[in-house]
Design a protein around this nucleic acid. Structure first.
Lengths: 216, 216
DNA sequence: CAACCTTCTATTGTATACAATTACTGCCCG
DNA sequence: CGGGCAGTAATTGTATACAATAGAAGGTTG
């Protein structure tokens, strides 16, 4: 998409992800146009994309509101993500090259460094984590996966609870990545897929423990 | 979406699926607006949806063309479809009620009747088949799956080769459905999932045999 | 004759005005 | 006082005009 369309998408998206908009809250296209600083036309493009990612929902009759996911929906998102990202890892294992493996190593080094500061640097951790999974997705060389997965990965709920992860949880992620790298280096598809699956499912377990304790 | 937007979507979609547009062929928004009989605004909405389903692609710089899927992409579509529809079947098995099981039986009866005519009625078969899978998707009660799966199921390639299916192939589908119904009646999630997986994978095998023979 | 620049044309992107639909408010009537 | 009905306001949907950008064509010069 185009410039105004893209900026609208990004601004609205971060507006939601940052938590400036409460789940369930109604938004009008005009308000969003104001926020994004463009007219309604590109906003509508952006909104449709966000609807697809299910960050926005159209209630009863065409009115727009911020999505409010149930526990069951979040649960299923992790399940779907595990399935698809496992598949991505399997594909990537076949198509992996030495340069990408090196790049994964370097990214994961940054990730671990971010953890081992006196106080873990969550922003850097999340960023490195995203880079890591992105690169795998690229190596999977599937336009379709590249279209489907991001919506499952960039969850607002995850970002919100990320700050509460313990150092041990974060370290475990780094180790999972190390093992993934080993599987890629060995071009062992099943190994890569299995590690990825357990990586995601553990993340879900960690997340839901924190979420249960934190609220409700 | 709204009226003009929806009609545009449907018309353009069937325009592509019917094969009126050759894969790779360039289309302008204006031409599509003409076809759909509406202005460019709703066409752009429809186009974005079709881009999401990957029926249309935006080449290098924003120019629109009909998607031309490689064998590898089609292969992966079946794999993804098998994974997701297996998952849908598992969810549906838990949430299935007696009334829906009855409805599945009745749909599958129609499907079999369509096969057993002197000359199989493919249109009716495809229709019943779609109803069958749709109902399972509904019982899976997952908005997310309901958004992701249809794009994988309604493949133009499949429709194009459907006419070449043998009577035995079609009958096998009917039997798969029977077994699915049994699994649902027993609320056996693993059984349902396994049958669904093999149902899709066989469909892929049948399809690719025909496709290989037919062209290329 | 080829490569590059320029101009023109085709196509997509954005804004805006207006139409259609939906929700809201307050009134009337029972 | 409550329920429905009318009229009004808010919101989304569509068309159209114009702006920006990419592609094609043609002409000039080394």
């Amino acid at each position: 998409m185009s410039r105004a369309s893209d900026t609208a998408y990004q601004k609205i998206r971060s507006y939601i992800l940052q938590g400036d908009a409460a789940p369930g809250m109604q938004l009008t296209e005009e308000k969003l146009a104001e926020i994004a600083g463009v007219s309604r036309t590109p906003v509508r493009d952006a909104v449709q994309r966000l609807e697809n990612e299910m960050l926005l929902v159209r209630s009863e009759s065409k009115r727009l509101s911020v999505a409010d996911w149930s526990d069951g929906e979040i649960d299923e998102m992790f399940t779907l993500r595990a399935m698809l990202e496992c598949h991505a890892a399997e594909r990537a294992a076949i198509r992996m090259d030495e340069e990408s493996v090196q790049r994964l190593r370097s990214i994961n080094d940054n990730l671990k460094k971010a953890i081992n500061k006196t106080r873990p640097d969550i922003a850097t951790f999340l960023n490195a984590n995203r880079q890591f999974h992105d690169l795998i997705l690229i190596r999977a060389q599937s336009p379709r996966l590249s279209k489907m997965l991001p919506a499952l990965i960039e969850q607002p709920v995850v970002r919100r609870t990320a700050n509460q992860y313990s150092k041990a949880d974060l370290m475990q992620s780094g180790q999972d990545h190390d093992e993934l790298i080993a599987a890629f280096a060995a071009k062992d598809t099943h190994w890569a897929g299995a590690v990825m699956t357990s990586h995601i499912r553990r993340a879900f377990h960690t997340f839901s423990t924190i979420a249960d304790g934190g609220e409700k």
